[in-house]
Design a protein around this nucleic acid. Sequence first.
DNA 1: TCAATTCTTGACCGATTGGTCAAGTGTGTT
DNA 2: AACACACTTGACCAATCGGTCAAGAATTGA
Lengths: 201, 201
Amino acid sequence: MNRRLTPRGRERRRQLMDYAIERFAENGYHPTSVAEIVQGLGVGKGVFYWYFKSKEELFLEILRETQLDLRRAQQQAIEGVDDPVKRIEIGIRTTMRWSSEHAHLNRLVQFAATEERFLPALRKGQDVAIRDAMRHVKEGIERGEIRDTDPDYIAHAILGITAQLARVFLHERGQPWEQVADAAVTLVLDGILATDRSPVG
Amino acid sequence: MNRRLTPRGRERRRQLMDYAIERFAENGYHPTSVAEIVQGLGVGKGVFYWYFKSKEELFLEILRETQLDLRRAQQQAIEGVDDPVKRIEIGIRTTMRWSSEHAHLNRLVQFAATEERFLPALRKGQDVAIRDAMRHVKEGIERGEIRDTDPDYIAHAILGITAQLARVFLHERGQPWEQVADAAVTLVLDGILATDRSPVG
DNA sequence: TCAATTCTTGACCGATTGGTCAAGTGTGTT
DNA sequence: AACACACTTGACCAATCGGTCAAGAATTGA
């Protein structure tokens, strides 16, 4: 669906995506019909199919954009930072902040994981995120700053804690992202056991 | 939908639930129609609505059963264990094992989180899990074995790592649960930083 | 001004959905 | 045998779904 779009066309397309994101996140992908989307914008049904060749393609487009956007935020944030552990920390904080500013998109990513047809696209983006994290982890291991365990496991543990804390404390309980990020960083770096490495706050 | 069921009736009900679990997990909740479920079992449509008053109620029933079953496994496993840290470790290992033996149910729980109508039921079960974990965490803090941070955060971090590693390494990559559990326990307890507390394996 | 192109309309389509129900059959009890 | 009740059938229903398309409106570039 590569159409030549005028500025007006691009704006329409954005409207459709933004409204679809809202409805998909709040009501679910399947329960939200194309009819509902176009009605919500007060336009005819043909408009939808002018910009997207199917409902499924719209969702995939949202998914792509989401993953790209988060990654851009990450890369921009860690630019010029040398220490790999510091890069991991910044990555966690950036994710937390981005996540708090894009609550709807979180839900959509989670849904994508539950339907076979969206899994390939989802994995593609997640693999990128994991590879990014693994790069820092490996470097940290070489420097002796990170425990010498399979970097793959470590990378997933980082993303796991971050995603879970984001979901619960940001989106369910509405806590400020800075606070949640602090907790995530501590738990990722030092685990839950009492220790004298990082004094209790 | 409280019917008096004969043994035959109970068996039918189980068949319906088991087959629905399989199809929901592999094909998605919405894309799996009631017609498909009864066809797969070779029975008429009325059978479905004899045992469940709607498709939604069937799903909620599956969700309840799932959460109950995992919790029972947990409680049985930690029975008689004194040390709270040890109880947490056993909890992680039990979850990992249970998760590897019930891959389908994992998917369903994940889906439930993406649709408003299933969230209340889902939360109820998860709150129980969190409270269980928090009890051990609090006791660990009192004993000075666990860092003095909000037990709520710690409990979620534990579940976050466990869920993420289970999803990726068990279900996507088919690794043995014992191995994944080892990694999860280490990362939960000690974090990712290099340390002399737990020697590198 | 005029033609090309982008954009919009909304009636329409076949397929499918979750759910109902009148009419049965199977089974156990008395 | 006869009755009650658990169970099963499958045609049927209104509603809704994702998607199409001929027709026309609005913009654009020459």
